[in-house]
């Protein structure tokens, strides 16, 4: 069960907003890069979020470059999951690969600072502030398995190959 507060973001949050190119030199120093996560979208986010909080965004979250660092630093910052109306393709897969849960749901039903409780296996989001319950569809099997192992590297270390 994941629990935390909602931080709202708009549509089309690009990987340039998540992990700006001007911090390119920090890519091999991810804890340092994580201090700048989403800086160009909401400056106060990295400094004031609490471990376990959620990113709650509009459509097409993570569009742009393939930089996996974007998904990694969101996870490193302590975000428990990203909720969005839709995700860009590469970001979505990267997130699963690094063990960051990504959830597609109607995020208009969630407000800034709402207290959320997410059950990944049941596909349920409880909004403790509004009292509303949202549901989301399960991931494809292979992605569920990868997420369960905490990412694709641990998955492959365990199974030695993909099980399809």
């Amino acid at each position: 069960m994941l629990k935390g507060k909602a931080w709202k973001f708009g549509d089309d949050i690009s990987t340039d907003l998540i992990a700006p190119g001007r911090y390119y030199h920090l890519r091999s120093n991810l804890p340092e890069l994580a201090k700048h996560v989403l800086e160009d979208a909401r400056k106060e986010f990295a400094g004031s979020m609490n471990k376990g909080d959620f990113i709650v965004a509009g459509k097409n979250f993570g569009l742009g470059s393939s930089r996996e660092h974007a998904a990694i630093i969101i996870k490193l910052a302590g975000v428990s999951a990203v909720l969005a109306k839709s995700f860009a393709r590469i970001f979505y897969r990267n997130a699963i690969n690094v063990g960051l849960p990504v959830i597609i749901c109607d995020t208009d039903k969630i407000n800034e600072r709402d207290e959320l409780e997410v059950d990944l296996s049941k596909g349920i989001i409880k909004n403790l502030t509004s009292g509303e319950t949202l549901t989301f569809p399960p991931l494809p099997d292979i992605m569920t398995e990868i997420l369960k192992e905490g990412g694709v590297v641990s998955y492959l270390q365990k199974y030695g190959d993909f099980k399809i």
Partner: peptide, 9 residues
């Protein structure tokens, strides 16, 4: 295009 890890695989 894919992430670094998928390309590593």
């Amino acid at each position: 295009g894919m992430g670094s890890t998928d390309v590593a695989i």
